[in-house]
Write a protein that binds this DNA or RNA. Sequence first.
RNA 1: GCUAGGGUAGGGUAGCUGGUCAUCCUAUAGGACUGUGGAUCCUUUGACCCGGGUUCGAGUCCCGGCCCUGGCCCCA
Length: 410
Amino acid sequence: MIVMIQKPRGTRDFFPDELEARRDSEETMRRAVSRWGYREVATPEFENLELFTLRSGEGIIEEMYAFQDKGGRDIALRPELTAPVLRMYVNEAKVLNKPVRWFYFGDCFRYERPQKGRYRQFWQFGIELIGADTSSADAEVIAVGYDLLRSAGVRFELRVGHLAMMKSLIVDLEVDIQKKVRGCLDKRDYGALHEVLPDTGRADQLTALIESKNLDDAFAITGAIPEEERIRETFAILDAHEVPYIQNFGIARGLDYYTGCVFEAFAENLGAENQIMGGGGYRLAHLFGGEDTPSCGFAIGFDRVMVSRGEESPRRPVTVAVVATPEGRIDSIRVASAFRKAGVRTITDLLGKSLSAQLSQAAKHADYVAVIGKREVEEGMITLRDLSTGEQKQLTIEDAVAGVVGIGVS
RNA sequence: GCUAGGGUAGGGUAGCUGGUCAUCCUAUAGGACUGUGGAUCCUUUGACCCGGGUUCGAGUCCCGGCCCUGGCCCCA
């Protein structure tokens, strides 16, 4: 027996029902960011490997689809889209009027162990706001993220923080200790924190900072820091945007290039992989040969959005099945064309089935049936049956089309 | 990379204390009902993930692999 070829690990096929639901969500999200003036860009599916190692270090090669092409170039399927978009900006868009508001939607590839909400090919939807280094910019990006997730129908919790708060308490420590401390705080693992940080007083200070519920409490712990005004403004503008969020100065994000505000969103009904959005302010452009340009952005895990939304049967567009007896076959082509010209999804029998068999098929796929048989041909009419009510009428083609379109619109 | 559970027709399942043509639902294809039909009836198609081992005999037990679903790690 021949072994059937299977799809590669961590990839998925999408049937029409699921794909239509995904397209619905995509369009909803595109419309949401458009309302904020963000415009879509697209970059290659693969890039020079160096683009990603410059950003994230050599270690990530292990988690990428990296290979040499036939010309011996080191290539990687893109594992994320922030670096490609910033590369695009540096290559071709430095002279654009600032700020630049871009969004992207595309598939990415990571060689990781698949689990719920984590695949080897997955889709990210994100925005990058380039060239605006203000509290208004930070707040706008967060507000767009909130708007986007909410319009997509996700239930989630938004957490907002700023790296300067934690940094001010650990800046004098050795770099690798800092990294461990940030890891502990990100996970709120205070037990591990005390192991990493023998200085109990400082560990308690950090714990209090993470647990603080308002800015006054937080600044009471850190004391005056240069970023205080920026942080207070950002939170105030967020309030003005009416974005509900939870203050969390423990958010560390994985990477060092984040510079200021950081935020994450967690979906309520996902499993271990429940982070649905992550982002913050960063500086990347200079790594790719551009000027040091402050940017802020986020990425949303689109597949997790779909999981979080759960089962929603997408509404099928109104569908007409044209069925015909042999005498009506030729006329039925003209009838089908008339419906299609009016924008109605119309299907016809291709297999030469009997009338009753055609009607059985129609009942599975359509909302209306247009019958064209000997009688209809002779009278120049068609019989239109509404499958939801069982009612049917003898109509001219024009009236039948108008009836379906009219009902379809309402 | 670590770990738990699991893979039986296209989908969903029974069998799993080794032993008749592997169960049922659905789906598919064909037919009956020959212009109001989504029904019903008859028939058809179609599966034990792959490889090895134990055994007279393996869907069933053992080992390895592949894949799936969770949980760690990681998460750009």
